[in-house]
Design a protein around this nucleic acid. Structure first.
Lengths: 332, 332
DNA sequence: ATGAAAGCGCTAACAG
DNA sequence: CTGTTAGCGCTTTCAT
């Protein structure tokens, strides 16, 4: 099988074929500068005909734009992120952006590495679920590239942020458990990182209640639950950092012969797609993950435009808090 | 907040600072050509010191390489894909690639659009879960860019492919259902696209059994199950295209007051992370999704290298079939 | 409204 | 082993 030499059609080819200069072609396709409607139409037709595709490299060299956004998250395999990512992809596509994704496993080193790669890769902006990097690093990144931080408070007032309203969500969960008559709550915290909104909100709503921290995964939830139950056997209700940990907790409880919610209630966070189909159906805090994703892109787009306009001090970046609601099912 | 003019450090700055020519700097960082260890070290130190980052655009202009791969899939929100994607990301990172993801919803138009964007974006290769595009289009794409097709038979012998062994997986599922004494099977098919391995394997293993097709989603599974049960009320076992459809089927069965598996067994495909935690725990066909992802990258890397070497007729591309095993849980 | 000139930052090819 | 010479394909001045 012969591989074509793949001779690239360049802007000059188009210019020649259309009988104009390169700049005219450039103007025709970028809609910039003055150009007569007729020549414009003709050039566009030629482009079509020759199936001309501008080189991102050549264009990027002049414009520093590649039409891509970076999306940094800890683990796409955690079902929370795909739901968000879908929102990001769709909104990005609507704005003409492609998105490159980096998994960090919430390691500071890998968050920094992802950051560097995105910077080097010529992306026009970053959406980051940073769990390990400090505020200073984020501010520094923000100076180099449009940035929106996700599910974390803004590291500085001029850095845009979009986040689930964790404080409210957590409060709703705890209040529900309390209203169910539970007096001994416990929390399975999964925030290995720097931001502890859920933990603080829990501590505020259930003062003195035990908190055990572990990785925000299924097995992390199981391990954390085992430990918490060992140290506090009287606990009758568990609030988990996310649904994955909640499921892990259910596994642990079953293993120990405890009924859910009979012997111990479990409430999660995220409301994953399959939360209602679990055994038992999971009571959890719902946030619109797709909306989170698309809102992140909108916010980032705003930052990008503002910066392009050299508009350093403009309207000020977005700081959105997305509503969180409790979905009561059977686990708690 | 002032935004830095962001003066780029160029290869010339490094060359000047290190007292060498640009070319030497290039050699030092790319490990190409002859260069003395000492100057090399010195240049590298200078690069470090100046925090020099080569421009992907300038480099890409010469090399046509951006260090990115394209990943085309129908919907990242379908839990099957994130598991695969994680394998893709990790392997890609190990090979120094970034990956840009495109969702197509299995629409031919969007598959073509994603393809074009990846092509235009200067990616070095594509991994594609194509469900709508015809073999001809894939072959054409393959001529323009290194390609590996996923979970689909190769459109031509020289196009690499990696796929779950759907034929075996399906056969195992059907045989299991038969062994359980079921005599009236039905299939919920979700392949809206061109490749029908599961469907054919099912038809071969359970001749004459009814098959209903719908979108490979939760609601698609519910709808397909409703229809199938209406037309064939005697069916006592359902084989679903994937776990999502299986869960949708379980919902439908419950809605109709049928017990699972008592009145009707359900077997899925994929073995999603939460399959064991569902109600009832889902019997399903397991494939190592992470391995699928990483294998895809390895295969693609092979194609890329071969093509670079101008090695059109070399060893021939990979055609891998990943093992599929049945995991019996309680749903069937 | 259009064209000509001038690079953007890098590497391949060739000298030395 | 190192330096010089040419562009890669595009957009941005600046003329016209």
């Amino acid at each position: 099988m012969e591989v074509e030499p793949s001779v690239r059609v360049t802007i000059d080819d188009v210019a020649r074929a259309a009988g104009v200069s390169r700049q005219t072609v450039s103007r025709a396709m970028n809609g910039k500068g003055e150009i007569s409607a007729s020549t414009r139409r003709r050039v566009l037709a030629t482009i079509e005909e020759l199936d001309y595709r501008p080189s991102v490299f050549a264009r990027g060299m002049r414009t520093q734009r590649a039409g891509t956004l970076g999306l940094i998250l800890s683990d796409i395999a955690n079902p929370f992120f795909p739901a968000v990512a879908r929102g990001v992809f769709d909104a990005a596509a609507a704005h003409g952006f492609s998105v490159v994704v980096h998994n960090t496993d919430a390691h500071a080193g890998r968050e920094a590495a992802a950051t560097r790669e995105i910077l080097d890769g010529g992306a026009e902006g970053v959406i980051g679920f940073f769990e390990a990097l400090g505020d200073d690093e984020l501010v520094a990144l923000h100076r180099r590239l449009p940035l929106v931080v996700a599910d974390r408070r803004a590291p500085a007032p001029d850095v845009a942020s979009v986040s689930s309203d964790f404080a409210t969500g957590t409060r709703l969960a705890v209040e529900h458990l309390l209203a169910q008559g539970h007096r001994h709550l416990g929390m399975l915290d999964g925030a290995v990182g720097v931001d502890h909104v859920r933990r603080h909100a829990f501590a505020a709503a259930a003062p003195g209640a035990p908190i055990v921290t572990g990785p925000p995964t299924l097995t992390g939830g199981t391990a954390a639950a085992v430990q918490l139950l060992r140290e506090h056997p009287d606990v009758t209700a568990l609030f988990a950092f996310n649904d994955l940990m909640a499921v892990g907790a259910v596994r642990a409880l079953r293993e120990q012969g405890r009924q859910v919610p009979g012997d111990c209630a479990v409430v999660g966070y995220d409301d994953l797609t399959l939360a209602a189909d679990l055994d038992p159906p999971l009571t959890t805090v719902h946030t619109d993950k797709y909306e989170l994703g698309s809102t992140l892109v909108e916010a980032l787009d705003g930052v990008i435009r503002a910066r392009r306009a050299g508009d350093g001090a403009a309207a000020g970046p977005e700081h959105r808090l997305l509503p969180a609601t409790l979905v009561v099912r059977r686990s708690g």
